[in-house]
């Protein structure tokens, strides 16, 4: 139970830092929700009303989705994250803070359906797992279930990404990374020129990403030293994605799942 609680604390330390960074990014770019912004609150309310003909969501969106109120939602979330570094999760206060954090993340996900990415999805999975498992008076089975869920979802995410790339012509012909890196949205001039100059690096990188992602769940079953190789690959992969592609939130969201993977691996091998 103590070890399991430590694993949750480690996961939260990485996850919380990532969500804190992402929340301050929203605060710095709050204009995106203004009437001139790409995610104009007025427009997002129309979308919500259109998609979810529920009175509750209509009222919620009308109450919260203004630039000014969202700013408070993000500010409160920052405080919430910090408090959860201090207050144990499975106390009543800790659990209420987890719920508040989950609600806050879910609210912002409603308005950022365009522009959200895999890191947002992983963030949502992790916070819901915490809310469901870190109830006051929790037990070992419940905590274990949460850790297994995070580890399995993480492995599934890599393997689905790998298989999707394996069925893609651009990835199999090893031009995908050069194409992605040459965009200003996700790329870098230096990386694009480098890949244009050294074609064999394209083959190496594309097949490396495809195969390692597809085989990633092996890290649950392999002996820990070999599993660590996969995790080190993942660490390097997400770090390079953050540096070259600017995808910093993926790094934190996915690194937060690695303690769960290590724990599940150890459980499997000590069973």
């Amino acid at each position: 139970m103590t070890t399991l609680n430590h694993i949750y604390v480690i996961i939260y330390s990485i996850f919380g830092l990532g969500v804190f960074i992402s929340t301050t990014e929203y605060l710095a770019g709050i204009k995106i929700f203004s009437s001139e912004g790409m995610l104009s609150c007025d427009m997002q309310q129309i979308n919500l009303v259109k998609n979810d003909n529920s009175h509750f969501l209509n009222r919620l969106s009308a109450a919260i989705f203004t630039e000014e109120r969202l700013k408070y939602v993000f500010l409160i979330r920052c405080v919430n994250i910090i408090l959860l570094f201090i207050i144990p999760f499975n106390t009543i206060a800790g659990w209420i803070l987890l719920i508040a954090l989950g609600v806050s993340i879910y609210i912002s996900s409603l308005i950022t359906r365009y522009g959200s990415d895999g890191s947002d999805q992983m963030t949502m999975l992790i916070i819901i797992t915490f809310i469901l498992c870190q109830v006051p008076l929790n037990n070992t089975l419940l905590l274990n279930a949460g850790i297994w869920f995070i580890a399995l979802q993480s492995c599934l995410s890599y393997t689905v990404a790998g298989i999707s790339k394996l069925v893609s012509v651009e990835w199999r012909t090893s031009i995908a990374m050069r194409l992605i890196f040459s965009t200003k949205t996700f790329g870098s001039r230096k990386a694009a020129l480098f890949l244009k100059k050294y074609r064999f690096i394209n083959i190496l990188l594309c097949w490396n990403v495809m195969l390692t992602e597809a085989l990633f769940p092996a890290c649950l079953l392999l002996p820990l030293p070999f599993a660590i190789i996969f995790l080190l690959w993942g660490f390097t992969f997400h770090l390079l994605n953050a540096i070259i592609m600017g995808l910093n939130s993926f790094f934190w969201a996915f690194m937060a799942t690695y303690p769960a993977i290590i724990y599940v691996n150890m459980q499997i091998h000590h069973a």
Partner: peptide, 20 residues
């Protein structure tokens, strides 16, 4: 209904290859 099921197909099968 709450859109909590993720889609894990990052940059595949069609990688983003354009700036808009």
């Amino acid at each position: 209904v709450l859109r909590l099921i993720p889609s894990w197909t990052f940059f595949a099968p069609r990688p983003g290859k354009s700036d808009y």
